[in-house]
Amino acid sequence: MIASLPSIVSRLRLKQLRLLIALDEQGSLHRAAEQVAISQPGATKALHEIETTFGTSLFTRTSQGLTPNDLGRCVIRYARLIHSDLAHLREEMLGIVQGHGGRLSVGLIMGAVPLLMRALTRLRDKQPELSVEIVEDTSARLLSLIDQGRLDLAICRSSVSRRPDAYDCLSLHEEQLVLVAHPNHPLAGAEQLELAQLGGCRWVVYPTNMPMRLLLEREFSQAGLEFPRYPLETASTFTLLSLLQQDRQLVALMPREVAQFSEGFGMIRRLPLQLRSRSEPYGVLSRHGSPLSPPAQLLLEELQRDTTP
């Protein structure tokens, strides 16, 4: 039986997490003990204490050494996350003590990439020693990272959450979508397009239940058309652009600013389709009631310079 959270918190020590990481890297208790500078009997005792703390075995013992089982791999993964978080904590503390920029973690959806790049460029001109982690993903996954405390801010939509009131919306930004394809797509020279003309095209779409996907489904429904069968699904900007480069028959919806950037490099071409629906605005979100760190506050001020009135 897995131990309770209070029991784990009261008994687990950071040095034990270091031992777990070393065991995963070395595969041997002897070599892991050397890596963390303890004796082999001490490592054996520590591993026993770790498994007792969690209430389960974490490794399979073989003649070749120790191999983590499914639960062990899970614990080791979180041990690495905790170790990484502590490294980030020290880095941020050093930045504060030395008067430097500190550290910032921000997540964003595809359409917010140009907005964030403009804001970060201005911010790093003022804070050149600021360390920034950028995570691009779907709104749902970004909100999960906000919940875990792994992001200071997320530029996405709270409407995909079952608990939208768990987040503070600090500013709102409009997003206009356009249809894009390879520059040599068969419809690239058209002066005007209707959705019915695209029924036979192959599509790259956003994952199910995401706002951009829902908007496209609504467009097809309002036009009395069947949604494209067998689409390619991705939330990655790079993957989307790569697919359009490889297959000249593909079409996709893309935020206008991202499309303008990509079109400037000759990677894609916008197609003249007028969408009936408006895309839901995205927001700069933080966890409700959580104060922003100084770097996050500075970034927010830069982002608000582009806020929709």
Rank of each mutant, 00 (worst) to 15 (best):
R269P: 05
L244A: 04
R229D: 13
L240G: 00
V251M: 07
E257A: 12
M267R: 08
Q249H: 15
T239P: 02
Q274L: 11
Y230L: 14
L275V: 02
S290R: 15
L271N: 03
A252Y: 00
S286P: 00
Q297F: 12
T234L: 06
E280M: 08
S221G: 12
T237G: 09
F265Q: 10
G289I: 08
S221Y: 11
P272G: 02
Y282N: 07
E257G: 08
E280F: 10
M254L: 13
P281T: 05
S242V: 11
R287Y: 11
V284M: 03
H288C: 12
G224A: 08
L292F: 09
R270G: 06
A259P: 02
S236I: 04
R270N: 07
Y230R: 14
R276A: 15
M267T: 10
L275C: 08
S236C: 10
L240K: 00
S293E: 04
G283P: 05
L271P: 03
E280P: 02
L243G: 03
R276G: 15
G266L: 07
V258N: 07
T239H: 14
E280R: 08
F238V: 15
L240V: 09
Q297M: 10
G289S: 10
G224R: 04
P231T: 05
V251A: 07
A296S: 07
F238H: 14
E263T: 03
M267K: 06
R229V: 15
L225T: 05
G224T: 03
S242C: 14
A235P: 03
Q249V: 12
P272W: 02
L241D: 06
L299V: 08
F238Q: 15
G289N: 09
E233T: 14
G283A: 06
S286M: 02
P281L: 00
R270Y: 04
P255W: 01
V284W: 01
A223H: 06
E233D: 12
Q222K: 10
L275I: 07
Q249K: 12
G266V: 00
P291R: 06
L243H: 11
P228C: 09
S286R: 05
A252M: 02
Q246P: 10
R270E: 09
R287V: 11
E263H: 02
P231L: 09
F227T: 05
P255F: 00
S286D: 07
S221V: 12
M267N: 10
L250C: 03
P294E: 03
G266H: 00
Q246G: 14
D247M: 09
P295Y: 08
E233R: 13
Q249F: 13
P255H: 03
A259N: 04
S290M: 15
A296N: 02
L241Q: 02
